[in-house]
Every structure is written in C-alpha cells, then in structure tokens.
Design a protein around this nucleic acid. Structure first.
Lengths: 193, 193, 193, 193
DNA sequence: TATGAATGAGTTTTCATTCAT
DNA sequence: GATGAATGAAAACTCATTCAT
C-alpha cells in the first residue's frame, strides 16, 4: 500500500520535475541529474520508471496530450449549433492553457522534436484533428468561413502560443471577461458572417 | 577581392548552416561539428568568426530579428488610415514568413532561450513593440477593438507559428489570395466594427 | 566503510597521479586523460572530486604546502638557542625534501603559476614567512649575519631546488652524515660568526 | 642589406617574445599565436625561422646557455688562487642573473623539459660541468670543503633560483655591496677553512 | 526497490601547423 | 619572404546511463 503510494509519488515527482525543466530549458537543455535533483530522487531511480530520457519525454508528452484532448472532447456539445460548439471549444482550450500553462508551453516547444515517437505524434494529431473536424463541420453547415481548415485552426490555436509565454512570465493575466472578449473577436474572424 | 568574398562566404555559410540546424534541432540539439560539416568548413573555423556557440546563436538571432524588423518598418504608411496600416503590417509579416520560413521558426524556437544576450532580447522586443505601437494607435483612433494590445498582437502574430511549421513540412502552401482572405478574417477579429 | 575507503582511494589516487605528472610535465604539459589513466579511474571521475583542472592543482598545491608547513612548524624549539632552531629548521626542510621529493619539485615548478588561487598563494607565503621569521629573530639576537632576510632564506632554501632535481633523477643520494655536513656549511654561511 | 637586417630583426623579435612568454607562462602555457602577436609578426613567419615550437625552445635554450656559459668562462682566472677563482665565478654568475633575470628564470623552468634535445641538454651540462670543475680543483688544492661537488655547486647556484623570482617580481634589488656580502657568506659555506 | 558513484562517449573549444595569396 | 585564414587533432569538460551496494 504505502509502497504503491510511494511508487506513484516517485513517478509523479519525476514527471512533474521533467515537465517544469523541459518547458523551461527544452529537452536537450535539461539533464537527467537536473530532473532527479528537482524530483528529489536518485539519478538511477528515473530509470526504474522510464527506460531512457527519450522514453521520459514521450511518456510526458503523451500524457499531456491525452489530458488536453480529454478536456476538449469531454462534454463536447455534439449535434448542437456551431456557435455553441465553438464556444465550448474556445473556452476549454483557454481553460486548459490557463490551468496548465507549463504543459501548453511544453507541447509547443516539443511537438516537432525528432525524439518523439509514433504514439506521441499520434496524440498530437488527435487533438489537432479533433479541432479540425469541428471546424470542418461548421464549414459544411455554412457557419464557418471558407478557408483551408488548418488555417482556421491556426487562427484559434496560434494566439495561445505567444500568450502562454506571457502567462508563464507573469506579464499577462487572463480574466474571464477577457477571454470572452477574445472569443468574440476570434469568432468574428472565423464565422462566415 | 577574392579574399573578401571568400571570407564573407565562410561566415555566411556558417550562419546559413546554423540557421538550418538550429531551426530543425534547436540550440542544444545542434553540435558545432554538425554546423561545420553542413557549412563545409573546419570545426575550428567557426571560432574564427564567433567566439562561442552562444555568440553564434546570438549573432544569428540578432541579424534575423533586425532584417525582420526592417521588413516590417520599411515603407510603413505612417499617417495613413488604420486599415491601410494593418494591411501593410499583415502583408509584410506574412511576406517575411513565407520568404523566410526557417528564420521565423528559428525565432519562435529560441526567443526564450537563456543563452540569448541583452542585445538579442532587445531586438526581439523592438519588433514586438513596433507591432504593439501600431495596434495602440489604431485603438486611439477607435478603429481597433478595445482589448489588451498584447492579446491583439497575439491574434495577428500567433497564427503564423503553427502555420510556419506547416510551411516547413510542406503541408501547406500560402497563395496570394489565401493570405488576402486571412487578412480579412484577422481584420474582422481585430477591428472595432 | 568500504564506501568511504573506496571514495577516499579514488580521490587519493587522482591526487597521487596528478602530483606525479604535474611534477614531471608541469601543469599545462599534463592532460586530464593522462591523470585519469595513471589513477586508473574514468576521465569523468576526476570531475566528481574536482570541479576543474585548476581546482585540482590548487587542491594539490594547498595540501602539499600545508603538510610541508606543518612538518616545519611541528615540534619547533621555540625559545631555544638560534643554532638549535636552525638545526631543527634545516633538518625538517631536508627531511621533507628527501621524503617528498616529488612534492618539493611540484612546489617549485608551480609556485608562480597564474592558475594558483588566493588560498594557494597564501599557503606558500605562510611557509616562506615562517622561515623568514626564524631568521629574523636570529638576527635580532645577533646570531645571524646582517643581510636581507629573503637572501638568507634563499641561501637555505635555494640549494634544495637543484638537489631535488638530482634526487628525482637518482643522480644523488642524501645520507644522514651528508646532510649534517651541509647543515654545517650552510650555518657557516648564515651565522654572524 | 635591409633585407638581412629585417630578417635578423624578425628572428630576434621572435626569440625575444618567446623568452618573455616562456619564462612567464612556461612552454606549454605559451601558444604560437601569443608569440607571433608579441613579436609583431605573422603566425606563419615563426615557421620560416624555426621548424616547430620545440625547435624554437631549443634554439632559445641553447643560445641562452651558450651566452651564460661564455660569460662565466670568459676571462676566467685560470691558474690563480681558488678564492680569486671563486670570486670571479660568483660575480659572473650574479652579474648574469641580474642582467638577464628573465633568461635565468627561463633556464630553471625548462631545464628538465622533455622537449629539450640533446644539444640543449649538453649546453646545460656544459655550464654545470664548468662550475663543478672549478669546485673540484679547489677541493684538490684543499681550499674547498670536502663534500660531493654537486652539493657545493647547489650551494652556489641554488640560492639564485628563488632570488631570480624575487627580482622578476621587483620584490628585490641586488646592490653591488649586497652581492659582495653574499659572496662572503657563500664562501664561508664552501671554503674548507 | 532505491541510490548515487563511476564511467566513457560525445561535446565545446583550443592551438600547432599549413598553404594560398 | 611574409602573412594570417583555415584546419583538424587533441584538450577540457558534460552527462545519459549503469551497477554495486
């Protein structure tokens, strides 16, 4: 029992430390001893839970993408109005970034890393595809402007990248009202009229 | 003559190789031999032109930011209508990214690096401030929506980040008409009316 | 226990190897791989105990000077006759050089090195000052010839430098009687009559 | 003519710069670019006069030892009284060290270097043997104390080593009277009576 | 199971030497 | 002859990973 809890705690401590350091210093800029020190475990202990540094980033990346995707997909108002769906999408996207800024920074710093494996790439694509599909359907209904779907996703997702950097550096705070105003602005860009 | 040309060529070859590798593999993921091999110079030669690996990224970052900023600022229609100014800004931004995709990817991968020196940071801030000022003035004239200027800059600048990754991977092509349509969409997001 | 012993052994093995190589080939003429090979440890292991090559010479220099100084100062016949004090000084000086010839060669090869830190310099000065003080007091008592103290110290200490080189190369052996005869000769040089 | 002078000047400039740097930083601590910069010649120019760095130290060492030896041997009062001969030896030794302190420091820092060739070693031995022979003859005449000749040479030569370091650092000045007093002290050590 | 000392391959950097001008 | 840019072998140092405890 205590054993299991401890085990979980160590693994979680390692993942937490890794997230913090990878998002601040990038994959190659972070050393395994850095992680073990921050996680307060022995250097060798990391290798009990992850076979290599690459395995560690991949585990982290996959977990984060999965959580992120679940946040977007859970309670998604399927079958409802495009505007309602967009509202849900936008708010869950922003909600995730505000609550998990470090994780979002981590994603955008690492999504092109050549150390990412198939599964990690797939988890990234899954989220991206989910958003694309929503946009797609909106276009089919004639509610969303007729542009390449990837561009439209970029209009929605892209602004979060510089903003997440501002949030991390505490140069920015996102109030509820603010996010609503941004949603309106983004919807103006994206809606067919 | 030949002397000077050669010298310039070596330095340029090193900068070109460094840009390519840094934008693909990041700063720490790129080794000096990687660069010297791609630039087709001896490993020691890099150190004739740059005192260290850090000095090299900084020289590259500063040069790129300066060129980028000049592109935005040159021929800027000062004193003209906000819409015209926005048009110029959007088109020069996109023009730069389309023509220098690698450089743009490089910027977004490195702008938070702790190896960047004061001058590099200042060159980044200069461009960001230039855009912010344009937005600011538009707001003062009542043409731009009343939101935190940093958010508005993010709405304009942010989408280019995922798009530049798509451009690099040839998963995307930006036609003239397309960029015009995107400008319209972005203007809808940003304009107060 | 075994842990501690091993640890001590590795550090000591490194210091021993460093002493041998530095005294034979000088600081810059000795490479870290040379040292690690002779000490029979991995190249990286040296850096677990010493932060840099400079830190290693300094640790070695300080340790040697401290031991040397303790040898001279321990059991020093304070308050006794100048001749007795000179006897003690001369014998402990020679005793140290005969027993630790390599260390003495090391000292004289490195005492002017610009890689030496404050502490190392201070440890060298401490020994030199100790000898100078003895000579000084002898002069005050009128037992030692009236010459600049540094010169007198040089008359006592200087001859050991070429002799230590001869000892190292086994071109010389210092018997007890021999050292007594040299003490007599040196005393004739140094005594006021 | 001018050519030849220039040539001589360049070679001399190189040797002068090498002497200064080698005596301050030792052989391995000095780089060829350091020397070429101080000599105010191109890096490649050194190789017109000396085939390698080793050849350069050896040329320098040999030249210095030869000059030093000539100073000792020239006008040596052969056939005269031991005391007179000792006077000449001591004064020419000190005269050389005072006039060429850097050269003397250079000698003592490099005489054991493994980069020295046969000729350099021989030039060092020649001087040492010259002194030894004088001592030897003095012993045969019964004027010099009966000790191993190498020890006696060390008594005469050794004190100059710490003193040359003091002279270089301007912590010491050797007046005529001073050197006479030191000669007296040294003669007391060395004379059989 | 957890540790962290030890390792050596790989990284950044230096420098003796060459050679085109 | 003189130069100094260019080189690459070798140096100092780092760090992912292993393994004895």
């Amino acid at each position: 029992m205590t054993e299991t809890i401890k085990k979980v705690n160590k693994k979680e401590a390692i993942l937490k430390a890794a997230l913090q350091l990878f998002s601040q210093r990038s994959f190659y800029g972070t050393t395994m001893p850095d992680i073990s020190t921050l996680a307060d475990v022995g250097a060798g202990t990391i290798y009990r839970y992850f076979t290599s540094k690459e395995a560690l980033v991949n585990a982290l990346f996959f977990r984060i993408m999965t959580e992120f995707d679940q946040r977007l997909e859970s309670d998604f108002p399927n079958g409802m109005d495009t505007r309602i769906q967009f509202h849900h999408l936008f708010q869950s996207l922003w909600g995730y970034v505000v609550d998990n800024t470090q994780a979002f920074v981590f994603i955008n710093l690492h999504d092109e890393g050549k150390y990412l494996d198939e599964r990690s790439h797939a988890s990234f694509d899954k989220l991206w595809n989910f958003i694309t599909t929503i946009i797609d359907k909106g276009q089919q209904r004639g509610d969303v402007v007729d542009l390449d779907p990837k561009s439209i996703v970029s209009l929605v997702y892209g602004p979060l990248i510089p903003i997440s950097k501002l949030l991390i550096n505490h140069k920015y705070t996102a109030s509820k009202d603010f996010v609503y105003a941004l949603e309106e602005a983004t919807w103006r860009a994206v809606s067919s009229k």
